[in-house]
Write a protein that binds this DNA or RNA. Structure first.
Lengths: 195, 195
DNA sequence: GTCTATACTTGGATAGAC
DNA sequence: GTCTATCCAAGTATAGAC
């Protein structure tokens, strides 16, 4: 599984053949099928492994962040970490691969769902009773954020250029202060307590 | 090229082989190589064709929209149109494919750049002298929007489920009113005219 | 320009020895 | 569990007839 991650990062989905992965691992190609049945299953197992590691990391990082400014800083740091660790690369590669191997689709949405859930949960906590909560449900915002992360990773992987992403995070940091003000003040709540 | 678009929409990148495309077109497989040299070049040509059509459509649609609310409505309508026309599908498929065929990467960024430029241009017009313009440059926002579109398309294509995207657009429409207020009122400009 | 035929390559997958 | 050997399918690409 480590070799699969390594190969996905280095060669992308197309390069992640049973032969290539086995060669990275220094073992024989047939072992892939002995242990995992198919290459796709190995790829999904590898994705699960890195996802789990990253989820733990995300949770501890977000737990220590209070308010939009810190959360955005955490998001940026973690995005960088993800790129280094190759987690986003692996995810992007497999999602990209899913467009070429449709069987992967359903397996992948199951693996992305927790990330949307995780994001929605923390957004929900932040938006709390703020006026934004009614306008923009946490689930929608979470979907958008996950889609944004994914789109950024794919665009960034096309050129090697990370300037766009960094510049975007810088802009978000600048936005975090007025945003904090907006969230901090529950603002003219007209007090209509709907369920 | 029509057959290539059709095949990409129906079968994804993996299914878009010279054989499959030729079969869709009702011609012989060898013609792909006679006319386009390689399959990738055909795919890029097809992408160019649909991109050009869509760009014309985007421009005329956005030209008639004034203010955030209308622009968001236009964005939603056009997103739906794109899904129908398959333009986003084709783009998503080829981008996904690029992760498996690295030679496509540079060719693709050249083809995406105009879309970021187009988006930035119109955002620039809208943000104008608003207080947001300093905090969030149009280029960053444009990059984010394009990434978001792409990510949405890829996530949506994993399941067949468009509910997320529709729900997100609905939320954005609700947000467009306060946003319009924010943009309309140049707001407490402390009047520090920096270059 | 379009076809048939075919060479070549790569990768998934299995059988069977060890 | 790991290896060698091998089969088979699918795809790119080219040669050459028409």
């Amino acid at each position: 599984m480590e070799a699969a991650i390594e190969t996905l990062k280095r060669e992308g989905f197309a390069g992640a053949s049973a032969r290539a992965i086995a060669s990275t691992a220094g073992v024989n190609q047939a072992l892939v099928f002995y242990h995992f049945g198919t290459v796709n299953d190995l790829l999904l197992a590898a994705l699960d492994a890195t996802s789990e590691r990253r989820m733990v990391r995300y949770q501890e990082a977000v737990a220590n962040a209070a308010g939009p400014a810190e959360v955005i800083a955490v998001a940026r740091d973690i995005y960088r970490e993800d790129l280094d660790a190759g987690h986003l690369t692996v995810l992007g590669a497999v999602i990209a691969g899913a467009s070429t191997v449709p069987e992967l689709g359903p397996a992948l949405i199951e693996r992305i769902r927790p990330w949307i859930g995780f994001t929605a949960e923390h957004l929900g906590g932040m938006l709390g009773g703020s006026p934004l909560a009614d306008l923009a449900p946490a689930e929608d915002a979470a979907f958008a954020i996950v889609a944004l992360y994914l789109g950024m990773e794919l665009l960034t992987s096309l050129d090697g250029d990370q300037a766009h992403a960094e510049s975007l995070f810088a802009a978000l940091e600048r936005l975090s202060l007025p945003l904090a003000a907006l969230l901090g003040t529950p603002a003219k709540q007209e007090g209509h307590p709907h369920a």
